[in-house]
Structure formats: C-alpha cells, structure tokens
Simulated scan of single mutants.
Amino acid sequence: MDRKDYQIVRALMRDGRLTNQDLAARVNLSPSPCLRRLRLLEERGVITGYAAVVDQKSMGYPITVFVGIRLSRHDRETVERFERSIDEIDEILDCFLMTGAIDYQLRVVAPDLDGYERFVRDRLHAIDGIASIDTSLAFGIVKQSRILPMPG
C-alpha cells in the first residue's frame, strides 16, 4: 500500500458513504484511478466491508459490559465449542482471545441490568466449559473510534 491507498482507506473509515467522485476529490485523484485502487483494496482484503455505525442506545441497548471469560479446559473441543457458541450470540459484539488471567474478553450490550443477568444465566451459563465469568460495567464512553492511525 502506498500513501494514496492509505488516504483512500482513511477517507472511507471516516465516511463509508462517499461516492467515488467525492472520494477521488478528497484524495486528489481522478475518478477512474480512484475506483481502480478502491477495487484492489477490496480484492486484497484491506477493505472488508461497509456498514452503518448505529447508536446502541437508540436501538435499545444502553448498557455496555466487558466480560472476562476463563475456560475450565483448553482442549480443542472446548475451545471450538466456546468460539462457535460466542459467534451465534448477537449481544456479543466483540470477542478477543487474550493472554494473561482470562482467556477471552467480550464486549456485550444489554437493555438493562436485568437483561444482562438474563443474558448470563440463559446464554453464557449454557456454554459448557466456562470456569469463570468476570463482569465490568462501562459507565460511559470517553472515546470510541473505528478509524485506524496512519502508518509512519
């Protein structure tokens, strides 16, 4: 990737609805070369998709919870079962494989504290192989960004 590719990616991270004309103007290219570069970035997997950024409170999920999971066993079957199960639960927005005291860090949304309790009891406890669940509630958001820094 060269500097122009990074400019294209950054412009789209800021506004994924840019037309090719607007994108080309923003990165100082003519439309045809801009579109060619964009298609190559998509083909190479640099740009993996486009999505609307939605306010979670407006959708009825004002509560954000960070959940640390430690598995009871680390054999292939337990790990694969856990990861398949997590992938099927819509309230889990992110799942990171971790180093240290916990095995996974989840970012979960809930409508309220009772809803989070139901989520733990009905969804997480149903997954075999979980040894512990550690919950931290987010009081608010100081910074939330999907815009990656430019290299260099």
Rank of each mutant, 00 (worst) to 15 (best):
I141G: 05
L23T: 02
R84T: 10
T48E: 14
A51C: 12
G115W: 02
S32K: 09
C95Y: 14
R3D: 14
V120F: 00
T19M: 09
T135F: 01
T78F: 07
D55I: 06
R70A: 03
D15F: 06
S145Y: 11
V65E: 03
R14D: 11
T48Y: 03
I147Y: 07
F66H: 07
V54G: 06
H125S: 10
L12S: 14
V9N: 05
A126G: 11
R123K: 14
G68A: 09
N20G: 08
L35R: 11
I89W: 05
S145N: 04
I92L: 02
E117F: 08
R37G: 02
F119M: 02
L137W: 07
D15S: 13
R17F: 12
S132I: 01
D2S: 03
D122P: 01
D90R: 15
S72H: 12
L23D: 02
E83F: 10
D122R: 13
F119G: 02
R10Y: 07
T64H: 13
K57A: 13
T19Y: 06
E88W: 05
G152Y: 05
R10A: 08
P151D: 03
E42S: 06
R107H: 04
Q105W: 07
R14K: 13
I89K: 07
I92E: 00
S136K: 09
V9A: 07
D5A: 15
I47Y: 05
R37I: 01
L113I: 10
R26W: 02
R36Q: 14
L124V: 00
T64P: 01
E43T: 11
Y116C: 00
V120N: 00
L71V: 03
M150C: 04
G16V: 02
Y50H: 12
L41C: 12
C34A: 15
I47Q: 04
G60V: 02
I8M: 03
L106H: 00
A24L: 03
G68R: 12
L93H: 12
D90A: 15
L71K: 07
F139P: 04
R107P: 00
D75N: 15
I8F: 05
V67H: 00
Q144E: 15
S30A: 12
H74A: 04
I63E: 11
D114H: 09
L148K: 09
S58R: 13
Q21N: 14
